[in-house]
Nucleic acid binder design. Sequence first.
DNA 1: TAAAAAAATAGGAATCATTACTGATTATGC
DNA 2: GCATAATCAGTAATGATTCCTATTTTTTTA
Lengths: 135, 135
Amino acid sequence: MLNYSRQRESIKKYLDSHFTHPTAETVYLDIKEEFPNISLGTVYRNLNLLADMGEVLRISLGNGPDRYDGRTNPHYHFICSTCGEVMDMDMEPIPEIDAQARQNFSGVITGHVTHFFGLCPKCNKKNNILIRKGE
Amino acid sequence: MLNYSRQRESIKKYLDSHFTHPTAETVYLDIKEEFPNISLGTVYRNLNLLADMGEVLRISLGNGPDRYDGRTNPHYHFICSTCGEVMDMDMEPIPEIDAQARQNFSGVITGHVTHFFGLCPKCNKKNNILIRKGE
DNA sequence: TAAAAAAATAGGAATCATTACTGATTATGC
DNA sequence: GCATAATCAGTAATGATTCCTATTTTTTTA
């Protein structure tokens, strides 16, 4: 059975109010302000619990630590190839992708994860300025 | 400048003839037959080099070690939630996904990675047999 | 084709992210 | 309040990968 814990509540609240897709480490350091002796292990354990319950989303990037997202409605993410920032995509997940995948597949497809890559708005702007300057 | 190395050639050949999406560890252990004192670091370094040159594909699964694929034509992957097997999808990547992503995005989108999840054909079969048995 | 220069290697140490362990603390049900 | 179960903090351990260095291999040059 799952018992209440102040630490878990605080982690959930943190993710519900920060849209930066923080790492476990970032959550840990920020929540430390409120709970000075919370431990990193507790943060990891609770992020796992919350993710298992579907109350937060885990975003695995391939390199670097996992990110967490309090918005649990299905949505895609964008990862900037330059600065590494993770952003929510303003775009509906496309169910036809699963349908199409099922065409030639004899197993069961339950869903998909899609990450977009490229230059985030900020890095793109910087980049354009540099190009205009002829650098 | 990049020099020739027997080890790198062997790694490339291995990936070109094995469609199992092996981990660096697996590549290492198998190639050890031919080069008994190849080191794991060498395998990692060359997999990185090959991936950077676009001669192999790195597949990051989120949990567990990365997988590598000698087939470099763009394609999607399926990961079995039960046994963890990674399979190539027989399905064309959908360019409209990028187009749609660009609609409400002010940065630059260069591409996307999509992984499908579910039950692989083998695990699905096993599962169905268990269900029929009423277990 | 042998010596010099540059790149790659083996082997092991180091790092990073995450999980596991343990005795102390906190939450829950009576 | 007390017993029991869950959670915690702190730290050790693990797994995957990268880094480091002395040695070996490859390429260049003469």
